[in-house]
Design a protein around this nucleic acid. Structure first.
Length: 393
RNA sequence: CGGGAAGUAGCGCAGUUGGCUAGCGUGCAUCGUUCGGGACGAUGAGGUCGCGGGUUCAAAUCCCGCCUUCCCGACCA
């Protein structure tokens, strides 16, 4: 990708009304833009990061045996009345009457919807277990949105639901999800602290939260004697039969006897993960993306203010060869000064930077530098591709 | 929803004891010189001073009401 063809509106100055480091960098690096309090647009670079996070989650969910689907955001209130959550979640629900005078809401979560769906198709123990998940926008009327995308009125969540015939089966799926979550956060470069938690409005007996200690946390946890604030990124619940009973989601056993399905649900605040990753991976110059999250694998910076044909040509050649090897490459081909390119590169935090400059090229060398390391290395132009790949991997 | 702070050019800010054509930095446009850490010069475009009302010869500035945003608290991925 050429920078000149890509929309990366970086900001030189700190945006007003930002406190958290991750919030400042989210906006300065051109990842997102606020439409109104608690509502954000994801710009091309931010969308790449979001997609990377989603894909890590997808891989681990699929590995754990869950199937992806997509549920609607627009719900009839009728379904929510059947579990009584039209009342318990009243304050956070965006609800309204539509043109046909139907009472509707925008989904703040999806237990009711998925349970209703499964009840339509599952009748027998032979069809169980079923584990489904989606990655979708949730709507919550937050009175106080916070720290940019950390607590927003519209945010992206991965929510999975398991349906089993008995407690043992549900606990098995719960354990699989627990392990999948550990893998996900590890791959995303986050050290999570797992705590037993209160199930709150979700219901059920057992639940665990996946927390990342960070300054902008909204929850207080004990890290195993000291109190720390942390961001809640994931929460898994053993729901039991609360929703299946209320919505008639039942199956027949071997003896033709009817039972409510035993459920579990498993959420990750996907958009919130971006903030957590930035919060944990930055320095005074900008973001330092972990490999799996980074919007590009590497950035090539040709310093060819005078339209130097050798530098421009080498940039094109490296771009092609590295792209052919399957890497995502960003080339800062803008007609900007070196200082500006370097500062923007540090800000957007691509893991590896390759600088093509006159002085080094005279010696037949190009510079390769990792964003997370201080020392740059000089490599022969001829063997640059191999040397660069070594740094990326 | 309680407490605090703030709204002036795309962005960051100054101006607020009422007074001339509302200013600075940055960004943007054009031209020239630059080109390894946010370069320099010249010219230029860009404003319902958050909104509405009031006081006054005169309001960005004073008064009243409202809106919006951020931070702390209570509540949730």
């Amino acid at each position: 990708m050429k920078w000149s063809n890509y929309f990366i509106p970086t900001l030189k100055e700190e945006p007003i009304g930002t406190e958290a480091v991750s919030h400042k960098l989210l906006l300065r690096a051109g990842l997102a833009h606020m439409l109104t309090s608690g509502v954000y647009s994801y710009l091309p670079l931010g969308l790449r990061v979001l997609s990377n996070i989603e894909n890590v989650i997808r891989e681990e969910m699929n590995k754990a045996g869950a199937n992806e689907l997509l549920l609607p955001s627009l719900h009839p209130m009728e379904l929510w009345k059947r579990t009584g959550r039209d009342e318990t979640l009243k304050d956070v629900m965006y609800s309204f009457e539509d043109g046909r005078k139907r009472s509707m809401c925008l989904g703040p979560t999806h237990e009711e919807i998925i349970t209703d769906l499964v009840s339509n198709f599952v009748q027998s123990y032979r069809q169980l277990p079923v584990v489904l998940y989606q990655i979708q926008t949730k709507f919550r009327d937050e009175l106080r949105p916070r720290f940019g995308i950390v607590r927003a009125c519209e945010f992206i969540m991965k929510d999975a639901y398991s349906f089993d015939r008995d407690q043992a089966g549900m606990e098995k799926n719960y354990q699989k999800m627990y392990e999948a979550y550990q893998n996900i956060f590890k791959r995303l470069g986050l050290d999570v602290v797992i705590t037993e938690a209160d199930s709150g409005a979700m219901g059920g007996d057992v639940s665990h939260e996946f927390m990342v200690p960070a300054k902008i946390g909204e929850d207080k946890i004990m890290v195993n004697g000291k109190e720390e604030v942390a961001i809640e990124l994931g929460h898994i619940f053993q729901l039991g039969t609360k929703y299946s009973k209320a919505l008639g989601c039942e199956f027949l056993d071997e003896n033709g006897k009817k039972h409510p399905i035993i459920m579990g649900c498993y959420g990750i605040g996907v958009s919130r993960v971006i903030a957590a990753v930035i919060e944990k991976h930055n320095d005074e110059k900008g973001i330092i993306w972990p490999k799996e999250v980074a919007p590009f694998d590497l950035e090539i910076i040709p310093l060819s203010g005078d339209d130097d044909a050798e530098i421009t040509g080498l940039a094109q050649q490296l771009y092609k060869e590295l792209t052919d090897k399957g890497l995502n490459v960003l080339v800062d081909d803008r007609n900007e000064t070196a200082g500006r390119k370097f500062n923007d590169a540090d800000l957007i935090g691509i893991p590896v930077r390759v600088v093509l400059g006159k002085k080094n090229l005279k010696e037949g060398k190009v510079e390769v530098k990792r964003r997370d390391g201080a020392e740059s290395i000089l490599v022969d132009k001829g063997s640059a591709v191999e040397a660069i790949i070594k740094q990326v991997v």
